[in-house]
Design a protein around this nucleic acid. Structure first.
Lengths: 172, 172
DNA sequence: TTTTATTTTCAGAAATGTTTGAAAATTAGA
DNA sequence: TCTAATTTTCAAACATTTCTGAAAATAAAA
């Protein structure tokens, strides 16, 4: 059975929904991801009003999630001459978006955990099996989370062409 | 100020809490992460009863999250001779845990999104700017998510030393 | 300055996710 | 088979997160 061609509207809703679901697996709430998807596929920048209408959400909700997206560095505020409203637009370069997400997740998730693991590693050794196991597990956990941190740090340092080389080598 | 040495109990609680926080950024609920942490640092396998007592949770809650952890392939059921109860133990090899998580997240998160992006890509081209933008963004998104999928697939296929050697080569 | 457009805040409402506990189902041994 | 130990289910209670909408704050124009 061949896949039916989707209309623009159907495709747009599917994409916004899919991006929302993926986002919610990544500690980003659904609305935040949906606003991001909407701005990502919009050729022009949009006002809060337009975002509210398009996604059927309240002003407060729109405002809050727009600010969160700006905190993540994924969207930006712009102005139009002779217009008092604020317009929002997404960074469109997919690699830049990837780098920005890598940068924020390192800072928000990995680094706090690495700090805690460092403390736990410092436990007083009373030579019991339980303490031994806790120390061993913590050491291995810290090693692995540390590697993930280095990897994301590397991503933020790479430019696009180095990234493409990296992808090529991934092929096998 | 030098960091004070933690007691076993303090360290254990810190670790369980840290693992829970990291887990919650990964679509895993608090109790599920706590049970996993508890089994990870426990030298012996534990019964449902012991897990309930240790974490102060109900039988239903324990049962449900134990099953979820088994679905993820992170813990296993064992039996002791002459004992009717089920005992649970965590996979201890940290690299094996990483591979298992990579395998599941590919299946649960990336592959469904890739499928949707394939559908959206198939949109009827009406030559408007909006359609053009949607197609372009979808194509780039699919490329990127596809690469993330290949990367996780590689993790599941490599052994630890091979994987870290691979990452080392990327450094420069 | 005053008026008007726009953005931000936040208390309560709604929605979603988690936990409980007791009853039902299952399983193994007698 | 029957009995007793153990596991599973699930409706209702509880907790947490997200969303709303109207009021307050801000900023630009008159």
């Amino acid at each position: 059975m061949p896949t039916a061609e989707l209309s623009y509207q159907e495709a747009k809703e599917l994409l916004i929904q899919a991006w929302g679901t993926l986002g919610s697996h990544w500690g980003i709430n659904k609305t935040m991801a949906q606003i991001h998807a909407l701005l990502l596929i919009s050729p022009e920048s949009l006002t809060t009003e337009q975002i509210m209408e398009e996604l059927h959400i309240s002003r407060g909700n729109a405002n809050m999630n727009i600010r969160a997206l700006m905190d993540w560095g994924l969207i930006h505020k712009t102005h139009k001459p002779g217009d008092r409203k604020e317009y929002f637009s997404s960074e469109k370069d997919m690699w830049e978006i990837t780098r920005q997400i890598a940068r924020e997740r390192r800072k928000r998730e990995l680094q706090p955990v690495i700090k805690v693991l460092g403390q736990v590693e410092n436990i007083k050794d009373d030579r019991t099996a339980h303490t031994k196991e806790l120390k061993q597990v913590t050491k291995e956990l810290k090693f692995l989370v540390g590697k993930a941190d280095s990897f994301l740090n590397m991503v933020t340092g790479f430019d696009q062409s180095r990234f493409f080389n990296f992808l090529l080598r991934l092929k096998k």
